[in-house]
Every structure is written in structure tokens, then in C-alpha cells.
Simulated assay, not measured.
Amino acid sequence: MEINNQNLYNKVIELLTQARQKVAQTINNTMAMAYFEIGKMIVEEEQKGKEKAEYGKQILSELSKKLVTEFGKGFSKRNLEQMRQFYLTYSIAQTVSAQFKLTWSHYLKLIRITDANERNFYEIEAIKNNWSLRELQRQYDSALYTRLALSKNKEEILSLGQQGQTIENNKDLIKDPYILEFLGLPEQSFYSESDLEQKLIDKLEHFLLELGNGFTFAARQKRITFEERHFKIDLVFYNRILKCFVLIDLKIGELKHQDIGQMQMYVNYFDREVKLGDENKTIGIILCQDKSESVVRYTLPENNEQIFASKYLTVLPSEKDFIKIIEN
């Protein structure tokens, strides 16, 4: 008679998976630390030379030849130069890397970020959110740090590099613009709001990453009814950090004041009919292709903390376009 040991099997699989992950993490940490120490040794040896530039080149060439013979291609002159840069970058301003927690590939990307505050931010977020190298690259390419910094003062920007993204109030959740290049929709193309919504659902994991920390998906085309009238909210999320619902309405084209009024109605309904007593007030985000800041400002009350309008871009902006965003 065959005994069903599925529960035991599942537990063993989970244990082995966790063990493999820990082994991989230990290897990554050990190798990153080893490369840091190699970089340190190279720099200290270079400092003994009278002609630093030429002496340094000679050291790297000779060391590379010996290490490649012994350990393989991973110790080319170029790789040794990167280890040297790794040490120089992280010995000047130690951050969370007292024990390196990312892979060597992650750090190769990070050392190319010249601004220390920005580099620290991406390192902290990569560790905190367990970003793969691809996810780190995507967040950097979409200028996550810059977008979060746009609405912050100097002290808050400094905090980004010390703590990463912290969510203490509703405005901390909002980005402007949101970058939705993962949808594969071309810029200025003809697509409907339902097309955009379907793409977001198809790429929900990517969209959650773009939204930020603490989001869980709750509903799509959420129907609300009162006085025999029916309305549908495009997307409903819940944020575990702020303990509140987050409603998202998708708009093609320019934002109108009626769109803001409609979102205000949705938010009021959720606050009065859906949220529990221990939950915080609902947040509404209108994602639009274009908006007038004046329309947003004069439609919403001065003390508004619940309704936000953000532009979305379906392609990664160029450096020139990001400069325009910052200047505006």
C-alpha cells in the first residue's frame, strides 16, 4: 500500500531549497570579500612604487599572467582593475557592505555609479528586495533614485542613500513618472485603456516592482454600485506598510478635472464602505499620459493627501528626457 507523503516531501524540498540558497549566498559573499581584499592588496602594493601609473600597470599585468595560469580567465588584467576599483570605491565610504551581501556581478554594476548616495541607495534596495542583476539594471535604467528624489528636500535625498526607500506617509508611495517600458507598448501608439490594463495584468510582477514596497494585488475592474449606478475601478491594490487600499485608474491622453473627481468618488466609497476601522484612508493614483499641474492643483484641496496624478512612460526616457523631467 502506497503512503501519501506529499507533506513530508514538500517540507524536505523547502529545506533543501533554502539550504542551496544559503550556500549560494555564502559563496557570493565570500567571493565579493575576496575580490575586495585582492583590490586592497593591489592598491597597497602600488603605493610602494615611485611612478604609480606605470608601476601599477606592471603589477596588474604580471599578477594577471600568474593568476590566469593558476585559476583561469577570471583574473584577467581587466578583472583585476575592477577589483582594484571595487576596493577604492568601498573603502572610501563603507555602507551596508561591511559584509558584502550581493553577487560580484551586482557590485560590478554598482561601482560604475559615481554618485555615492545614489550607489548606496541601489545597493540597499537590491539587498532589501532581493533584486537579481537584471532587476537592478532595470531599476537603474528607469532612474528609480532620480524619480524618488524629485519631490524630496536635501535631507530626505540624503536619507535615500542611508536607508533606501522608506514609506512613512502617502506621498512616499508616489513616483512621477512611472516607467512602464516592460509592457512593450510603443510611445505615442494607439491603444485603449483596456489594452493598457491587460498589459499591466499580464506583467503584474513587473508592475508590482515598479509600484514599490509593500504592494499586493487585490482586484481588477472592481465594481461598486450605489443608487442602481455601476462604476468600475481599473485596479485595486493593498499596501501592507501603510495598511490602506490603493486604487489605480488608467487614462489615455491628457488628465481632465472630471477624472480627478471620479477618483475622489472611488476613494470616498472605499473609505466609507470597504476599509476597516483599523485601516488607514484609501489612496487614489491616476496614471495618465499627460497632465496639467494647474488642473491637478486647483481640482484637489490644498491639504490633499489621498489623490495623486502621475504620468506614465511606455519607453525608457533618454538621459536628455530625464534632465527635462528634473528641470520641470
Rank of each mutant, 00 (worst) to 15 (best):
G261F: 02
E168G: 09
K175I: 03
Q188L: 04
F182E: 02
F215N: 07
I174W: 14
T216C: 03
R223Q: 11
L196H: 00
K203I: 12
F207S: 00
L196T: 01
L196Q: 01
K256C: 10
N213L: 04
K175M: 10
K222G: 07
V236E: 14
R220V: 04
I260D: 02
C244G: 05
F190E: 09
T216I: 08
S192Y: 10
F182P: 05
F217W: 14
L209Y: 06
N170K: 04
L250H: 01
K222M: 12
L180T: 06
D249S: 01
I233V: 15
I224P: 04
Q188S: 05
R240L: 15
N213P: 03
P186H: 07
I248E: 08
G253D: 11
D172I: 04
Y191H: 11
D234A: 03
K203P: 10
N213V: 04
D259P: 05
N239L: 08
N213F: 06
I233C: 06
F215P: 09
I252Q: 05
I167W: 06
D234Y: 08
N239V: 10
L208F: 00
F190Q: 12
L200G: 00
D172C: 01
F245R: 05
L185C: 03
R220E: 09
S189P: 07
I248R: 03
I174G: 11
V236M: 08
P177Q: 01
F245N: 13
I241S: 08
L200V: 00
F231D: 15
R223G: 00
Q221T: 12
L242C: 13
F207K: 02
D172Q: 07
T225E: 15
R240N: 15
I252H: 03
I233E: 13
L211E: 15
L173F: 15
L196R: 02
F226H: 15
H257E: 12
K232T: 14
Q198Y: 10
L209R: 08
K203C: 15
D195E: 14
Y191R: 11
G214P: 11
S192A: 08
E193M: 09
L211G: 01
Q165D: 10
G184E: 09
F190R: 13
G184Y: 09
D172L: 05
K256V: 12
R229D: 14
N169F: 02
R220W: 05
I241E: 14
K222L: 11
T225D: 11
A218S: 15
G184V: 01
I241H: 04
Q221P: 03
E181A: 02
K222N: 13
Q198W: 06
N213D: 15
I233A: 05
E187H: 10
V246C: 05
Y178H: 07
P177L: 00
K171W: 09
E197G: 01
I201E: 13
L180Q: 02
F231I: 06
Q198T: 08
S189K: 08
